[in-house]
Write a protein that binds this DNA or RNA. Structure first.
Length: 103
DNA sequence: TCCGTGACGCGAT
DNA sequence: CATCGCGCCACGG
């Protein structure tokens, strides 16, 4: 029952996502890069599906766009606004809420 | 094994 | 600002 090497990557992404503080957001691509895998934005999505308890609502698309499909999009927005995150039209105001990972 | 799919991103139009 | 096209890549049917 050996583990797939990919599982490792998902753990790294999960840890990275957990670092996003309340009231802040990070983009899929930003998370991938911060975790050491620039360009692996799609893998970030896999991590979100694979792990429970992650602050999934704090993950947005490039430019602050809500990318979650269907009704969940509204829930994400509400959760964010609940934390004080503001929007500019349909996108999160990244200038004010984008989280900066430490290097 | 092949092929369509997707909570992506970015440059071009 | 809205769309489109293309690269990317693990998954699942």
């Amino acid at each position: 029952m050996n583990e797939k090497p990919q599982a490792k990557i998902l753990v790294v992404f999960a840890d990275t996502i957990r670092k996003i503080p309340k009231g802040k957001v990070a983009t899929y691509g930003q998370i991938a890069a911060a975790a050491g895998f620039p360009g692996a934005a799609r893998q970030v999505v896999r991590a979100l599906h694979a792990y429970h308890g992650l602050p999934w609502h704090r993950v947005v698309g490039a430019g602050g766009a809500i990318r979650v499909p269907g009704e969940d999009a509204l829930e994400q927005r509400l959760r964010l606004e609940m934390e004080g995150v503001t929007f500019r039209g349909l996108r999160v105001d990244l200038d004010r809420h984008q989280f900066r990972f430490r290097r």
